[in-house]
Design a protein around this nucleic acid. Structure first.
Lengths: 152, 152
DNA sequence: AGGCGATAGATGCAATTGCATCAAGCTTGA
DNA sequence: TCAAGCTTGATGCAATTGCATCTATCGCCT
């Protein structure tokens, strides 16, 4: 028995739903941010990681690992964030190539403003549609689709 | 009790997983297509809808409804597909503004080639990772997140 | 018939993304 | 020590996306 190629109908259906729903939800969340005159989701992702990292900041390649952006996209996104004063780039002592990215006060404030809107979107789009138990089931099932199987 | 703003931890976790996993899977599927020298996923979506629609074809606005692309993106995507000879644009008799898009033989062939790769990605990334029953649960849970609640 | 708002689709221009490549600093091994 | 290869991050250029707006037609209402 050879199942290397053709996906099962169940796999196709789950895939299709996943593609469609995730696109819809991203779009809704982006719309809400735009409506509030706030930056796009990508900015939130980076600010969030940097806020969690604290004063020590993070290296760009660490942000790439955490957020899954392409290297060149991260490079440019950080340039935009710096231009807006939301992050600062610090030289790093033990590696002359690298830099450390640290969130600024303004960056934290922007993140807070974005979360007010983004968090509400999550609550409405997901939290209000499934009970907590189902959300946990969903998260667990999705967790088994991660690549590699570690990393949240 | 006021839950209009803050999402629950379960909602946040499910959201985060959904965002991350869907991005990863799209990226993997796109990579596989690129590796095969094939067009991107967006092309498949359109060719798939057109193939299902048959000889009657579809109007661009119908494709937009089905695929969730923005109107200007669809307009340009169709121009590219037409330039590649994968679809043809026909005038439509009862509406002078519109056109009907129909897939060509070459379009069907390209879709077939893409499915060989895309289907394998689905089988590997999803089908091989969860048993059918779990895939059905996943699809059902995702179905409850659709907006609006109809429309597959 | 004639006007007027709505719908279908295209497009100019700016911003972003993707691809390829580059420059600079690190690390390893002969 | 120093050449070769790897890692980190930036960048030129082409393709795509987003936004705003435009044209053409349609449908409705008077």
């Amino acid at each position: 028995m050879n199942m290397k190629a053709a996906p099962s109908p169940e796999a196709i259906k789950a895939w299709a739903r996943l593609m469609r729903v995730s696109r819809q939800l991203v779009e809704k969340a982006e719309d809400a941010l735009k409506e509030g005159g706030l930056p796009p989701l990508a900015w939130y992702d980076v600010l969030h990681e940097l806020a969690e990292a604290g004063e020590g900041g993070l290296r760009p390649f660490q942000l790439i690992e955490r957020t899954l952006f392409a290297q060149y996209n991260m490079s440019r996104l950080l340039a935009r964030l710096e231009a807006d004063g939301l992050v600062e780039k610090l030289p790093v002592s033990d590696d002359g190539r690298g830099q450390t990215i640290r969130i600024t006060g303004k960056g934290r404030e922007t993140r807070r403003l974005m979360w007010a809107v983004y968090g509400r979107s999550i609550a409405e789009l997901v939290g209000a549609r499934l009970p907590a138990a189902d959300l946990e089931t969903l998260a667990a099932l999705l967790g088994r689709l991660r690549h590699p199987l570690a990393g949240d």
